[in-house]
Design a protein around this nucleic acid. Structure first.
Length: 475
RNA sequence: GGCUGCGUAGCAAAAUGGUUAUGCAGCGGCCUGCAAAGCCGUAUACACCGGUUCGAUUCCGGUCGCAGCCUCCA
């Protein structure tokens, strides 16, 4: 039985979909004016894992993740660059898709864009005005009247009085109440704009998600996800807009992932302490990043550092080592390990425990005479986490190292990866042959020297029973 | 100031009212020419102070420390 921690109730609840067997899930995606950083990667990987597990559990899932491709920052950045905002967003959407692909994040079923949902957005704003939840302000912008919505604050645990008391001085006299937020923003000359009943303008950020989610999944759906920081005001506002407009419950389960931190501080654009996915991919294999993200629970903070990435690489190497040399066949997998794995995932997607099950499985596999069933079990269960799908030898020898170049020039390359990581495979094989000769002559000095040379190049040798020598690159 | 949440061994990270988490690192052993990998064994914990309980790291209260939100942010 799957349990999900619901931010709305601050407790783990049994997951009961609205319609038996079917799940609708919406996740707030990226605002595309820059490259994705590791914090964005966490959202993508976490909800990709959630969607994989829901499907594994037999649910027919519709997974929607939007793209915010119009907002103030996008306009600002496009102006700074002296380019059309559409050119800017296309470029970063392409880059985002490359990053996702590298991290084994499967594409969502639907990826609506704000600029392609303007009609739906306008319809929702019109409804809100009709129902008196929204008004045209003194400057022509359309605002949501927060005080009109009774449930305001139910998600974030805030109440209107506290918010008003803590409100910073707001010079915006166009609003009736400082807490009101913009639904439709009038365009300044030269800004991107769409026709609307209130004049040329663009949608506010919050209404975009309300419109795109209800359009794709209906007025009332199962799961809505996003980063912790979106709880307030973004998701609170979404509830106010959607429930105000439709009169129905908006979402049953709210899921929020924790932040990636750097030196105990939130990784964010504003703090400037972020690492982009493609930067990190120059140093670490994509699967190592994915493993690192899944090695802590999705709601916990995740501290980013090279040391932790290194540890993730070593841990992943242990799992791949267990699979090395075993032919994976189509067999029924081990029921006990499957059950333990599912119990972990059923408990609010407890990936650290699920990984611990995989490590226990790896130990059994290392001991086993007949490895077929355990190996198949390991690979199949890991697939639910989006891990261990590479050929073990390719992983261990660094052949699947991913190189990310400029957007649009994404390359998956074994040959280049070898050059990055030091010695070519030809050189390694040659040295191994020379060492085997030396070993045959019991010339241990030469043999050890060759081994040390390769170690310098990040290559570790392993003498196998039967006189063969295999090798791997240090992760 | 208001509202969330967190504080676990050398590091990372889970569960749990009484019993081995797990990975890396350490120590002892097996294996190996020596290693590596693997296997076996082993040490080191639950911020502090009270309370509830036969028994608390786990529940309750308080203290201290940390992070996040209250402004755009995944």
């Amino acid at each position: 039985m799957l349990k999900i921690y619901n931010t709305l109730t601050r407790s783990k609840q049994e997951f009961i979909p609205k319609q038996p067997g079917k799940v609708g899930m919406y996740v707030c995606g990226m605002t595309v004016y820059d490259y994705c950083h590791i914090g964005h990667a966490r959202v993508m990987v976490v909800f990709d894992t959630v969607s994989r597990y829901l499907r594994h559990s037999g649910y027919q899932l519709t997974y929607v993740r939007n793209v915010t491709d119009i907002d103030d920052k996008i306009i600002q950045r496009a102006n700074d660059n002296g380019e059309e905002f559409g050119a800017l967003t296309e470029r970063f959407i392409a880059a985002m898709h490359e990053d996702e692909k590298a991290l084994s994040v499967l594409p969502p079923d639907l990826e609506p864009r704000a600029t392609q949902s303007i009609g739906d957005i306008i319809n929702m704003i019109s409804t809100l005005i009709t129902k008196d939840f929204a008004y045209v302000g003194g400057n022509g912008d359309v605002f949501y009247a927060v005080s009109r919505f009774d449930g305001y604050g139910k998600l974030s645990g805030k109440n209107i009085e506290d918010l008003q008391a803590g409100e910073r001085v707001d010079v915006d006299t166009a609003k009736r109440d400082p807490l009101d937020f913009v639904l439709w923003k009038m365009a300044k000359p030269g800004e991107p704009a769409w026709e609307s009943p209130w004049g040329q303008g663009r949608p506010g950020w919050h209404i975009e998600c309300s419109a795109m989610s209800t359009c794709c999944l209906g007025n009332h759906f199962d799961i809505h996800g996003g980063g912790m920081d979106l709880q307030f005001p973004h998701h609170e506002n979404e509830i106010a807009q959607s429930e105000g407009a439709t009169g129905e419950t908006f979402v049953n389960y709210w899921m929020h992932n924790g932040f990636v931190r750097v030196n105990e501080e939130k990784m964010s654009k504003s703090l400037g302490n972020f690492f982009t996915v493609r930067e990190v991919l120059k140093q670490y294999r994509p699967e190592v990043i994915r493993f690192f993200i899944l090695s802590s629970h999705y709601r916990s903070p995740l501290n980013y550092s090279d040391e932790h990435l290194d540890e993730a690489g070593v841990a992943l190497t242990r799992l791949y080592t267990a699979l090395r040399g075993v032919e994976i066949t189509e067999v029924a997998i081990d029921a006990d390990f499957k059950l333990r794995f599912e119990q972990a995932m059923d408990d609010d997607f407890n990936t650290p425990v699920a990984l611990a099950v995989l490590f226990d499985l790896a130990r059994e596999l290392n001991k086993a005479q007949d490895k077929q069933i355990l190996a198949a079990t390991l690979k199949q269960l890991a697939a639910i986490l989006g891990l261990l799908q590479d050929d073990p030898d390719d992983f261990l020898k660094g052949r699947s190292f991913t190189l990310v170049a400029e957007p649009g020039k994404f390359t998956l390359s074994g040959g280049q990866a070898n050059l990055i990581k030091g010695a070519s495979e030809e050189l390694i094989e040659e040295k191994i042959q020379r060492r085997l000769e030396a070993k045959k002559n019991k010339d241990w000095g030469t043999a050890d020297k060759i081994r040390d040379e390769l170690k310098e190049l990040g290559v570790v040798l392993e003498d196998m029973p039967g006189g063969k020598t295999t090798w791997r690159r240090e992760s």
